[in-house]
Design a protein around this nucleic acid. Sequence first.
DNA 1: TCGATATTTTAGTTGAAACTTACGTTAGTA
DNA 2: TACTAACGTAAGTTTCAACTAAAATATCGA
Lengths: 101, 101
Amino acid sequence: MIDVMQAMAEPTRLAILQMVRHHEMPAGSIAEKFKGITRPAVSQHLRILKDAGLVTERRDGTRRLYSLRPEGFAPVKALLEDFWDTRLDRLKAAAEKHEKR
Amino acid sequence: MIDVMQAMAEPTRLAILQMVRHHEMPAGSIAEKFKGITRPAVSQHLRILKDAGLVTERRDGTRRLYSLRPEGFAPVKALLEDFWDTRLDRLKAAAEKHEKR
DNA sequence: TCGATATTTTAGTTGAAACTTACGTTAGTA
DNA sequence: TACTAACGTAAGTTTCAACTAAAATATCGA
């Protein structure tokens, strides 16, 4: 789960995730979008995203098509909702305290 | 938003967030929980979490009490839900494709 | 089979982030 | 005022993640 967060928490990788969100893209096209960063670097980012389960890779001839894998975000999503709930917990606690008077 | 993710995506800091989730804790008590890491290191992590808006700091005499700031997670939560929605988008797209036959 | 295309992998470099030690600060207390 | 407790801050070191350049791999077409 920490690896999923680390995968997301990097500007280039986050941008990649946005790119492949709606339609799959070949590695080359992804790399082209980045100015001032080489193709191998992008390839390595893709590896990290894949290992984290955030993208899937599909081969088509010599190309490799990447697309988002939304389920990969599930654990982080759960954690976030957990933290978010603290807001409600506090409202509840405050209400009970008030009631006690 | 990327800074929020980076703040979360570190084991020690994530552990701190869990610690202060339900009740505020003084910096010292937080540091004690960590074996093999010094107090200043924890202090620096707390700084990063505070700057990212994930915890709040309250002073009580010489102590500093930290607690979770759930609202800080909002941007990441929104992003995650955005990605998550891709699942539904695909189901929908698949259904429409099916319908077309 | 040879070359071209699209891509990853490896090895090595570099810069940033996480650490430690030493020092500074602030608030309470004798 | 001097001392202590509970911290943060500064400076320097180490570790690690992101990068580049060069080499390796896989697939297709002539």
